[in-house]
């Protein structure tokens, strides 16, 4: 009887595809555990501020520091602290409380996630809208003036640090301190629910700044992909069949060339959902990245751990999704 039940339970896992998915998910979970453990180790073993001492104020007696250390659970061995952290995380989805202001890390991250998502999705749309057409045009007309201009421009955009680009954008276009005074500048973010127009306008400059280097990178990637695809046999066949060049490029060439772009976009977006630290810092946008930045500056471990795990979760999830999609597309991957 038991054998029958076990057989029934295991039946789904006879599917190589399902086994592959389960394997990838388990590896993803293992990766998250490794990331969390590494963050713990880095914080505890390498030089960092002692939260109990930071909290104790100046010249405390040893008893005060000990009392604070105990209240924060820092007097327990490293592995016990880690175990308790993971236990609370798994059982209660509790990411702990800030040593600095005693606020819930989970609540803070979830409150800030819509802000970061607004920034990340807007930037994604922008960089795809800019990067793909530019890449295609450059690929179709290689070595033309347009190609040289856009590729040179993309090099500049890739090389420009986001922090610098953000400041330049503010000094040129912010409506309070800019030369041209076109868009709201630093510290103007308002939630969509409060003021949709204000939300949109306050994100225009951050979207462009965040999208700039991605757009440049994508333009170069699309250019290379399209150029490579256009030399493939099936393109030659399409041309031989007498299809128009426009149809060859858009119906046959681009579809093949853009597949890796979509994959990359998914991965990049997942990375940004963990917080666009520099953009959020320059434009004073209260997102997850800004939260991580403040935590680092204050040596506030629970938010650091929380934002790292959060970011890792998105990246690993995106990787799993990509792997699974590939497995569907290419059966060889499943084995």
């Amino acid at each position: 009887m038991l054998g029958v039940i076990a057989g029934l339970l295991m039946r789904p896992f006879r599917s190589p595809m399902l086994r592959y998915v389960v394997r990838r998910v388990l590896w993803g979970i293992a990766m998250l555990v490794i990331v969390s453990a590494l963050t713990f180790i880095i914080f505890y073993l390498f030089p960092s501020a002692d939260p109990a001492q930071l909290r104790a104020g100046r010249n405390p007696n040893p008893g005060a520091v000990a009392a604070i250390r105990h209240s924060l659970g820092l007097d327990k061995p490293f592995y016990v602290q880690y175990w308790l952290y993971m236990k609370n995380l798994v059982l209660h989805f509790d990411l702990g409380y800030s040593y600095f202001n005693q606020t819930s890390v989970r609540a803070e991250i979830f409150a800030r996630l819509p802000v970061t998502a607004s920034l990340a999705f807007g930037a994604l749309i922008l960089w795809l809208l800019i990067g793909i057409p530019v890449g295609i045009i450059s690929a179709i007309k290689p070595r033309s003036i347009l190609d040289r201009l856009t590729m040179s421009g993309s090099l500049v955009a890739i090389s420009a640090p986001v922090y610098w680009l953000g400041l330049v954008a503010l000094f040129l276009f912010a409506n309070d301190i800019g030369v041209l005074r076109l868009f709201p500048g630093s510290g103007t973010y308002v939630p969509f629910s409060q003021d949709p127009v204000g939300w949109f306008t306050s994100l225009i400059l951050p979207w462009f700044v965040l999208a700039a280097s991605f757009a440049a990178f994508y333009a170069r990637m699309v250019r290379a992909q399209v150029r490579e695809t256009m030399t493939e046999d099936f393109i030659r066949t399409a041309r031989a069949k007498g299809l128009s060049e426009r149809r060859v490029i858009f119906r046959h060439g681009l579809r093949a060339a853009l597949t890796p772009v979509v994959t990359m976009a998914g991965l990049d977006l997942s990375g940004l959902l963990g917080g666009a630290i520099l953009t959020e810092t320059v434009f004073n946008i209260p997102g997850v990245g800004r939260y991580a930045y403040d935590a680092i500056v204050n040596s506030d471990f629970p938010p650091i751990q929380g934002t790292v795990l959060f970011s890792a979760f998105f990246i690993i999830s995106a990787n799993i999704i990509v792997d699974v999609v590939y497995a569907f597309l290419d059966p060889r991957v499943r084995f």
């Binding site: 400041l167 000094f171 309070d176 301190i177 630093s186 810092t281 004073n284």
Partner: peptide, 20 residues
């Protein structure tokens, strides 16, 4: 009180411009 204005140049310019 708007917190998080990390760049002191931006901060000063915003005050001079009257947006803070």
């Amino acid at each position: 009180i708007k917190e998080g204005t990390s760049d002191p140049s931006v901060m000063a310019r915003q005050i001079l411009a009257g947006s803070a």
